[in-house]
Write a protein that binds this DNA or RNA. Structure first.
Lengths: 190, 190, 190, 190
DNA sequence: GATGAATGAGCGTTCATTCAT
DNA sequence: GATGAATGAACGCTCATTCAT
């Protein structure tokens, strides 16, 4: 029996990430992925049930890693506002250092695939994040609105800013970033 | 029902809007548009250079109409904060009354097509809107950040909220809307 | 506007018939048909909705022609037994002179496609034939069993005999044919 | 439920039979067989040279068993006509009690595989059966035609009747069966 | 003997666009 | 202006089989 080649799976993920980032999700076909990964396109179906399955699994993996990385340095003992700013800073830095990952996640979020993620992955995607905001609400530091609405004012503006930065239409200065952190906090704080 | 004496161009636009809204941008092919518009697919190439050209022109037309409609009732004489809230309210109402248009625009914004809009259309898309924020800045009511950043905190959170509302995951109460207006204002005001 | 080329449709049908006859139904792919007909495989979808649609339409056309041809010389005035033997003889001759058509029909009959023929074609396929047996029953010349059972003893043995003849395992002498006519008649007559 | 200690060969045969019966011969792939048999598809190639080899061997095995079972109760001493009717009855009962086996055999008979059975298996398939008809001919009870022609009028009509019965289009009453036995006998008797 | 990994070849179908009238 | 015909290229995926262990 031939042993499964860990590199092969990594190659498939890497090739997919590169293609989605450079050509777009809609231009990323199974055969292009295979060609880039130097394997036969039928081999992809040894590792994944379908193209959809491949993309979802890559998305979950990337987002899980990102969540871990961002929340890693947040300490329970710190003041909430402080933690919030560190978190958002981590997020921004992570994106800037891993633009491919960010662009992939963004494209996925805005595609029909997003609604096809199996429920079993939800915890991996949202848990760390939800419990953080929950803590802020319990300390009465945040507006009395849904967690969803809080995140909307936290992440989406940042995401938009950085997308525009990547497209070259805006600069990303320290002052810009400081502004964003302040505007987000102003939006959600009591 | 479409009237027989409608001109073909209107039919093409209508059919495209319906398809993108109901099936998604990636499932909208030229031949499906033609079938829905009761014309030959080659006729589409009499009116447009390519599929891309058709989609961009439809996008610009829809967004221009939306802008006009939203800014229509804003009077120069009013207090800025008041105008701002009316504007955002208009935006929300327009979206809720024209979900097709909103969903089309959103899909377009998040597709590779967005970066292919020819510069000549920029004025149609951004002018009304830019000059409004400019006025707020001149009155020193808004944070000293780029207009782009101000709009990010104004529109995107609303857009996200309503997308989630359309997907049925959240309710759209008066209180929700009031929260959003307040949060957006808190984010951008000095 | 380019006019539809009648030859093209004929070419598709001819190529399909040849392929099914020589390679078998399961080995007949759309691309092979296209290649044999000297057209692009996408052109086939200008004329037919699907591969299934193409095969069913060819089947109905061939069987309709065969029915017409076989029943053509049957006169109402003749004695039933006489007509019956002429009919079976016509059938045998038709098959022998058109082995391709026969082999196609046989393969189709024994494939899953047979159960997918739309009802609208039933009249074309069975009417002439059913009314003939009905007449025999009304004259009390045939056993009191279903028309279906009568046809089973009429056609299937002939079909089997000729299939075996085509495969080279049996000769087809006048005496053989005479035997079959007699055996079929003995089976169904009162 | 298949027992764990069943040997793999039996599992392969069972899985194949089930699949061909439920999905059809053309929908029965090696990998589906393997999945149903809970083995690796490459294991199948330990037991068989090819898919074709597997199907042929299963066919021969099933048909041999059926022949044995049907001819088992036929006694040499009985009157031929009596034996003939018992034989046909056995055949009918066997089919009805083993629809899977019957449907597999029928699909195989009407596929290109039938012509690929190696000669070495012919005895297993036809011997019992040929010698039975030979006896009838020697007693001058049967028409002076080839054994092949005799069998055509014996089995095929029954087969067709029961196929139609399985498809739900016809009932299978005692009277129906009696008719068939009589019609077949009328066809072959002197 | 048994198997998971791997694959080239092929499947039916749709695509955006061009052609010829 | 309008259109039905026509197409090469590409799509996601399955196939029977072989490989390496």
């Amino acid at each position: 029996m031939r042993r499964k080649d860990d590199n092969k799976l990594t190659n498939i993920f890497d090739a997919t990430l590169e293609l989605v980032t450079s050509k777009g999700l809609s231009e990323t076909s199974v055969s292009k992925i295979a060609k880039k990964a130097n394997i036969s396109s039928s081999t992809i179906y040894v590792y994944f049930e379908s193209k959809e399955d491949l993309l979802i699994k890559l998305y979950v993996k990337l987002k899980k890693n990102m969540s871990k990385s961002i929340f890693d340095s947040i300490e329970n003992s710190s003041e909430f506002k402080e933690s919030f700013k560190i978190l958002l800073n981590n997020f921004i830095n992570y994106i800037i250092e891993n633009p491919d990952i960010f662009l992939f996640i963004e494209q996925f979020n805005n595609s029909p695939l997003y609604n096809k993620i199996p429920q079993e992955y939800y915890d991996d995607l949202y848990q760390l994040h939800d419990s953080f905001y929950q803590k802020g609400k319990e300390q009465n530091l945040l507006k009395d609105v849904s967690i969803y609405l809080l995140t909307v004012y936290t992440y989406y503006p940042v995401v938009q800013l950085i997308k525009t930065y990547f497209s070259g239409e805006v600069e990303l200065t320290d002052s810009n970033i400081e502004s964003v952190l302040q505007m987000s906090w102003d939006a959600i704080k009591v």
